[in-house]
Structures are given as C-alpha cells and as structure tokens.
C-alpha cells in the first residue's frame, strides 16, 4: 500500500513539499503565510478570487493547483473560508518566541471558546500537542465557516491541522 493523500487521506511530506501553495519553511519563518494544502488537480478556483493581494494564482486551466506568492501574501486569512476543500491554513511561525499561531477553517458545533485549552490534532486525527484557542472569527462573508486560531508550541505548527475540545 502506498502513502499519501490517495492512500490514507493525509498529504505526505513529499506531496506537501511539491505543492505550489505550500510555502517553504524559510518563508514561513520570515512572516505569517497561507499554507494551501491543495495537491490534486481539482477544477476549482475561489481562492484565487478571494485573495485581496493577488497572492494566489490558479489561472487556466482551472485544474491547476493554486500557486502562492509568499511576497504578496500577508497571512490575512481571507482565503481560508472560501476554500470548499477546507485545505487552507495560515501559519504565524513567530507568534511569540516559543509559540506559533495556526489558523484553520472550522465547521463543527459547538465553536470552541477563546482561551480554552484544547488537543491539537495532526492530519491523521492523532493528538500531537496541547494548545490554546486564541481567537474564533465568524463573519457573514465566511458563510458559516469559522476561522479558529490556536496558539501552540512552534515545533508542531506544520503538523497540527485540527482541534479536539478537552
């Protein structure tokens, strides 16, 4: 059995490394950026139109994977809620000296409380670390997809993609 998205539902390290929407660690260490974990040629482009800074390009054909321009991206998170695949995250690697801030789309009930301690889950649903809900943003523009930001130890920022309430 192979590894990667098609075989276990988790994009592998290689798949993520070759995704044009996933910025390099070097760039991520420099500034907050969107991380677009979109690795399949899906006919879909709302992210391209959502970005107020033209930092995301899908272009023609529409099955291109989104390309992120780390120079233009400000990590604002506008793209997160527009992705039908819920595949966009924003990582602020230097939120504090020791912690990173991971912002993710969240569509479950109930929404977490700001300040709550939570389990941070990896792409496979496994508990990776403890974290704290920093902010929960909702907006009419997000159309019921909340933006949940969690503060967690830096070393786990590239592995944590979900939360579970304790």
């Amino acid at each position: 059995m192979g590894t990667g998205m098609r075989f276990n539902g988790c994009p592998s390290k290689n798949e993520l490394a070759s995704a044009p929407g996933v910025p390099s660690l070097e760039d991520l260490n420099r500034k907050p950026l969107a991380v677009i974990e979109c690795i399949e040629p899906i006919p879909c482009n709302p992210c391209e139109h959502a970005c107020p800074f033209q930092a995301i390009t899908v272009g023609d054909p529409i099955t291109n994977c989104p390309v992120l321009d780390p120079e233009k991206c400000t990590g604002c998170g506008t793209c997160i809620a527009c992705c039908p695949g819920l595949a966009i995250f924003v990582i602020d690697m230097n939120f504090t000296a020791a912690t990173a801030l991971v912002t993710m789309p969240y569509e479950l009930y109930p929404l977490p409380q700001e300040g709550a301690e939570i389990d941070c889950l990896g792409r496979g649903g496994n508990t990776v670390a403890k974290g704290r809900i920093h902010t929960v943003k909702t907006s009419e523009k997000f159309d019921k997809t909340a933006l949940v930001s969690i503060e967690l130890s830096k070393e786990f920022a590239m592995d944590v993609r979900n939360i579970r309430m304790c």
């Binding site: 569509e107 479950l108 009930y109 109930p110 929404l111 909340a146």
Partner: peptide
C-alpha cells in the same frame, strides 16, 4: 436522535 443545533444549518 434529533439534530437540534447545527454549525451550518
């Protein structure tokens, strides 16, 4: 069981 509250609906 009824779904009384729903994140989307």
């Amino acid at each position: 069981m009824r779904v009384v509250n729903h994140p989307i609906l």
